[in-house]
Design a protein around this nucleic acid. Structure first.
Length: 285
DNA sequence: CGAGCAACCTGCATGC
DNA sequence: TGCATGCAGGTTGCTC
């Protein structure tokens, strides 16, 4: 779910409340996420969270004992609440759960010495919470990741090189985390629209000039989404419980049958690698 | 090596 | 109203 802008929004939302704070309690209600949550994270109780950083769609929490590695999967989100306050959250308006009863799908709670708690909610449980005592960048899941899309290491040359001799459709390539991290289904569709490139086009047959446009479009759309707090479709929320506002800026994703904002022809929806792709067949060649 | 696809899990929209 | 079906922001790991 969350793509890079949503993870970055989460990072910015939780950092001021948690960075430097000491963990007073860790509650694991459901350890069966994508992988089981390792027991050893319980031993982080009493330690401070020294730094919170992001790599692709992963969040790292640095402690004196090692790093927590978080992934939000398709439906994960984090919420900051006072420890004792079960009633004020926008999510908690439902009467389905009484006060002090954990919300459904709230699988992990961290409590801190400053009186705040972080609540991890993930209905589909595709997310992950792992621990490593070593350099997290050397972790199996992290070390083979491609460049950060908003940094200069991701540029026309790197993407053009990655496309050489590749027959797969370009959408496939820009969603491949070994080529560039953070671009999921929504922003892949949106970036290809901005660049005027048909998502089905074979990656190896796109000119360097058009790859340059695509790199620029990816950076533009991700930065714009971050500026608006990400995209909320269903599950995602910012750390204060508010939705992201980029949904109203989507040109093609979820817009099947609606007029293209450039040429007014109907936005099409197709399937590529079992994922929905939205595009304008007139503007994207 | 690359391409294709099943798997993990729950909730929601749609159609009969 | 109920039930079956298909779809959803991601990623690994299998087969060919």
């Amino acid at each position: 779910m969350p793509e890079l802008p949503e993870v970055e929004t989460t990072l910015r939302g939780i950092t001021p409340h948690i960075k430097g704070q000491t963990i007073s309690k860790i509650i694991i209600r459901q350890r069966q996420l994508r992988w089981p949550i390792p027991d050893e994270i319980k031993s982080l109780t009493g330690l401070p969270v020294e730094e919170i950083t992001r790599r692709g769609k992963y969040l790292f929490w640095q402690t004196p004992a090692g790093h927590l590695i978080w992934h939000l999967g398709m439906s994960g989100s984090m919420l900051i609440l006072p420890i004792d306050d079960e009633s004020e959250s926008p999510r908690r308006q439902s009467h389905e759960f009484t006060k002090h009863e954990p919300e459904k799908h709230e699988h992990v709670v961290f409590e801190f010495n400053n009186g705040l708690s972080l609540r991890y909610r993930d209905p589909r449980r595709f997310g992950a919470l792992l621990f490593t005592a070593d350099d997290p960048n050397q972790h199996k899941l992290i070390r083979s990741l491609g460049p950060e899309p908003l940094q200069s290491e991701f540029n026309t040359d790197t993407l053009y090189q990655a496309c050489r001799n590749r027959t797969a459709p370009i959408k496939h390539l820009i969603m491949d985390s070994h080529i560039v991290v953070g671009v999921g289904n929504i922003y892949a569709c949106e970036a290809l629209y901005l660049a005027g490139i048909n998502p089905k086009r074979k990656a190896g047959k796109i000119s360097k000039q058009r790859i340059e446009k695509l790199v620029s479009a990816i950076k533009t759309v991700l930065q714009a989404a971050i500026n608006q707090g990400g995209t909320t479709l269903q599950d995602f929320n910012q750390a204060d419980g508010k939705p992201g506002y980029f949904k109203q800026s989507l040109n093609v994703y979820g817009q099947r049958g609606r007029p293209c904002s450039i040429c007014s022809s109907k936005i099409r929806q197709i399937k590529q690698a079992q994922r929905s792709t939205f595009y304008c067949a007139n503007c994207q060649r």
